[in-house]
Computed example of a mutant assay.
Amino acid sequence: MNKESKIYVAGHRGLVGSAIVEMLREKGYGNLVLKTSQELDLRRQAEVESFFAQERPEYVFLAAAKVGGINANNIYRAEFIYDNLMMETNIIHSAYLHKTQKLLFLGSSCIYPKLCPQPMKEEHLLTGFLEPTNEPYAIAKIAGIKLCENYCRQYGVNFISAMPTNLYGKNDNFDLANSHVLPALIRKFHEAKIAKAPYVEVWGTGSALREFLHVDDLAQGLIFLMENYNDIEFVNVGTGEEVSIKELALLIKAVVGYEGELQFDTSKPDGTLRKLLDTSKINAAGWKAETSLKEGIEMTYHWFLENYSGIRGK
């Protein structure tokens, strides 16, 4: 990419898309094409093809997706597979038709089997059964990977895929029922602190292990891949470090300054017990995450406090 390249960021108001836009602008990329879901429904093929025919973006970051935590994935199963399949298929095909120079598709670490060897390497894809609670979302993301891979093989395009681990940061969704665990806990601890509640409830046993990547690090990583990576095979993007949900809760509790107790609701699911990405491929290419989990939570809580009245999920 050069600084004048026309770049389309699909999903620019979401957690990942907004971070990509901010990072691109910081690096001097000013020719950005941005459309809200009200202006362009990515699930509608005719709308997407018309958009690409008119704008002809040279580079595409495909960060648009319907996302959520365990609860949302399990309840809105049809929406998660339909919406994500339609969005990615329409964008990838239109990018091919209108000769986009390069596209980066954003997947998710939930593509890996439930009982995947740890840490999870790229070659472990499709070697076992998926976690049932997020199977529809995972299947949609696997389809996106295979679309990019096979458009490269048949048409000779440069469409790459990146699989990030669990993400968090500014512009996250803090809904207590449908968000991911880290933003939900930030909100829970903050509101318990204000209300002087005696305890905070945490879903599951607290023993499940998770890896967390700050969204600004991801944005750096994705721009790095767009500028430097051209292989058909997808690449993991993460920190290579993991923490238990209990340890995460205690860390957030300390950052927020909540002084009550933790209670674990074991009637709620833990999900996959361990999900650690092997990041040796992207590290060898020259990129590594920089933000520690504590630093990232402090940054996210600071943003949460500044934007509390208008945060998503309230």
Rank of each mutant, 00 (worst) to 15 (best):
M87I: 09
V60A: 08
M86D: 11
P57Y: 10
L126H: 11
N71S: 10
V60M: 08
K102R: 14
I70G: 12
N134K: 05
E47D: 15
A65S: 12
I91T: 05
L106M: 14
I142L: 03
I111V: 01
F105Y: 04
K146N: 09
E47I: 11
I70M: 13
A78T: 13
E122I: 15
K141D: 05
V48L: 06
L126G: 12
C110T: 04
L97S: 07
I92F: 13
V67F: 06
L125P: 09
L97C: 13
S109R: 12
H93G: 06
L85M: 02
A63V: 06
E135T: 02
Q118S: 03
I139D: 00
E79V: 05
K146F: 08
Y82E: 15
F51A: 09
S109T: 08
G68P: 10
S108R: 03
T89G: 06
E122L: 15
N71A: 15
I81D: 07
L147E: 14
F51R: 00
I92C: 13
S108C: 04
R44G: 13
N73G: 15
K141I: 00
A64H: 03
A65F: 04
T100Q: 10
F52P: 12
C116T: 03
S50I: 04
P117D: 07
G69M: 14
A138N: 01
G107I: 00
R77P: 02
K146S: 00
Q45H: 15
I142T: 00
V48Y: 09
L115W: 05
I70A: 11
C110D: 08
H124G: 01
N90K: 14
L147I: 08
Y76G: 06
E131R: 08
F105R: 04
S50G: 12
F129E: 06
I92A: 15
K141T: 02
S108Y: 01
R77I: 03
L125F: 07
E88W: 06
C110M: 10
